[in-house]
């Protein structure tokens, strides 16, 4: 464990907690894409399949449970909680995300480190996570302005993988033959997808005006 990875995990945890808090307290999911939340639930479900078979540490297992629990409860709130579901913007959240799932699955079957069930699904989860934010970013461009909790959620979510990149650089230089091209490339693509969001988020913060 290094400071970059810990910072990354904390940033990631705060992002899901910010969103869960927003939905739970003000009973609103305005501006939030349920498709991105569903993709993230699939990402965690397919990445943490080994949660019971391979024990890494208490921290690792605890965080896996936090991410699984939060992503599935956010989807549950947005799909089945009456008050929250009413604030869901169905007309605008129209990204065909099942195509993302299918193409990532095909890609994982083609490009992976080892052709085993767990490894292919783990690779699939990396590909899917890289593009999971797309429905949310598309929805963002359609809704005029977004409330700052949703903005903070996206900012933290985009930042966590950027911190992971620093963690991979650190591990590359400190651990012999720590090389994982698939993880690195997907992590880089994922972070780059947030580039223009970060730009506008920074502008709104600098000029102290609403993000739109």
């Amino acid at each position: 464990m290094n400071i970059f990875r810990l910072a990354g995990d904390m940033t990631h945890m705060f992002s899901v907690l910010v969103l869960l808090l927003k939905i739970h307290t003000i009973k609103s999911c305005a501006g939030v894409s349920v498709k991105t939340q569903e993709l993230y639930a699939i990402v965690f479900a397919t990445r943490y399949l080994d949660i019971f078979t391979s024990f890494v540490s208490i921290y690792n297992t605890f965080m896996k449970l936090v991410f699984l629990g939060s992503s599935f409860s956010i989807v549950w709130y947005m799909r089945y909680h009456k008050a929250v579901h009413r604030t869901y913007d169905r007309e605008q959240d129209t990204f065909r995300h099942w195509f993302l799932v299918l193409s990532c699955l095909l890609l994982a079957l083609l490009i992976h480190e080892k052709f085993t069930f767990l490894e292919v699904l783990w690779t699939f989860s990396l590909y899917l996570e890289a593009v999971a934010i797309l429905p949310q970013l598309v929805l963002l461009q359609r809704t005029r302005n977004i409330d700052n909790l949703t903005g903070q959620y996206i900012f933290l979510l985009g930042g966590y993988r950027g911190l992971y990149i620093l963690n991979w650089i650190y591990r590359y230089f400190t651990e012999p033959h720590f090389v994982h091209w698939i993880t690195w490339i997907t992590g880089l693509v994922q972070t780059l997808l947030y580039a223009d969001f970060f730009y506008y988020y920074f502008l709104s913060w600098k000029n102290n005006k609403k993000l739109n």
Partner: peptide, 10 residues
């Protein structure tokens, strides 16, 4: 082995 090594991240 490799698998356990890189599956130590979230």
């Amino acid at each position: 082995d490799i698998a356990s090594q890189h599956h130590d991240e979230l």
